[in-house]
Amino acid sequence: MSQQTQDLDGAARRAHHDFIGQPHTPDEGPIARAEASADGLSTPDAPLGPLGPPLDRRSTFLRGAAAAAGVVLVLTASWLVYLARSELVLIGLALFLALGAEPVVSWLVRHRWPRWLGVLAVVVVGLAAATGFVLLVGPLLADQAAQAPAYLRAAQDRGTLIGDLNARFGLQEYLTGDQAFAVGRTVFGALGSTVVVVVLAVYFVADLPRIRRTAYRFVPASRRPRAVLLGDAIAQRVGGYVLGNVLVSLIAGLSSLAVLLALGVPYPFLLATVVAVLDLVPVAGSVTAGIIASLVAFTVSPTVGGLTVGFFVLYRFLEDYLVFPGVVGRVVKVPALLTLIAVLLGGALYGIIGVLIAIPIAAAAHLLLHETVFPRLDADD
């Protein structure tokens, strides 16, 4: 065997992976020559070698194959998205919540907290808030459950308001039939989905820096700087909206609690919690919460009911023109008309979840239009 042949065989032996296809033999022919060349490509900085030359994009075969593959890929992706639409909604909602927690985590990191500790602090505070909510509402719900026999007796008495409604609409049959089972199944399904969303959101916010880097790697290097600026601006608007919306809801709940306690409305803590939760839903949420609280207030007296209605009308005005613009408006920067249209379309397309994410999606679209589409349309040819 000549020296050249021995050198080639040695290079091929070094390139042949120690745990794949052993033993290495000289009769590998052209593969051995490729392995010998591969040994020269491998470097400490690029152990698997540099990128090869790009394919000839002018090739008719490649163009046809790329077009056919593109059609198949789009159809396959559309079908997979349709099959996994419920799971994708949960994943998207979890990412939505993670972006809402990210401003707090990043603030802690900038103040020299390790990221893992910042994420842990946010999770602990969130769990503490959820636990406090359960401890607050749980006894009230138990008290209401203890009054269930009285409600059932009233439902059978036509002389009471509940009995009259039961006779007209069949409330008792509705609550004791298959619909009650369906409602219970829906509630347990929602609880399971909530747990999944929370766990995913924790993983997302913990790994968000790596997710961010990976997402930008999909953008060509020539366009990556601009993509970084636009992507971070969108993420900042989404996160600011989520965090601001939670703060606005807390303000709504606390102010409602103070008024309901002052007016002597029954179950003020429970009603204030309902106000805070429903206020997370743009436009319709606070109106619905105000109607519920006002109906309970009218059971005390017409005066208390009227004062409660007046408070919620006044608060709705203050929230739209003072609280929400001051807390969220500076971050989202979406015109009021676009907000209303986005909420209506989001609700029509995907219910409550669509309403919740409509405004940040509108904010992202608004930003992209003003930063990419309109400048190109306004530019001279």
Rank of each mutant, 00 (worst) to 15 (best):
L108V: 01
D320R: 08
G354I: 13
Y241Q: 03
T43D: 01
D232E: 14
V373P: 00
R85I: 10
F374V: 11
I162L: 15
D7K: 12
S255E: 02
G49T: 06
A68H: 03
S193D: 15
L243P: 00
A297D: 08
L257I: 01
I234L: 07
P302N: 06
V122H: 02
T308L: 04
R210G: 01
L99R: 02
L270E: 04
F312Q: 01
V332S: 08
A235P: 00
G29Y: 04
G290Y: 02
G10W: 08
A69G: 12
R223N: 07
T339F: 03
A289N: 09
P50W: 03
A150Y: 05
P268L: 07
T176R: 09
Q144E: 14
P149K: 08
L97W: 09
L97S: 08
L136I: 01
I31Q: 12
T5F: 07
D164N: 11
Y82S: 13
D381I: 08
T43E: 02
G100A: 05
A84P: 00
D56H: 04
A94Y: 10
L88C: 04
I357P: 09
V287Q: 12
T131E: 11
G132N: 08
T303Y: 06
T273M: 10
I31S: 06
R112Q: 13
V274W: 02
M1V: 14
Q236V: 00
L117P: 00
R14P: 00
V275Q: 03
D39Y: 13
P139W: 10
L368F: 06
P302W: 11
V122I: 12
D164I: 05
P266D: 06
G126Y: 10
Y203L: 15
S78R: 05
V109L: 01
L161N: 05
A276C: 08
R217F: 09
L88F: 12
Q6E: 14
T339V: 15
S2P: 14
V196F: 08
R85V: 08
K333G: 00
A98R: 10
V304K: 03
G290E: 02
T43W: 05
A364V: 14
I251P: 03
H366N: 15
L175D: 10
V199S: 06
A130P: 08
P26L: 07
A12Q: 02
A38P: 00
E28W: 13
A221V: 14
L117Q: 11
V309R: 01
N245I: 09
V219Y: 10
F188D: 09
Y315F: 15
Y174P: 00
L93G: 09
A101V: 12
E319D: 15
V109T: 11
A365Y: 09
P149H: 10
R168A: 13
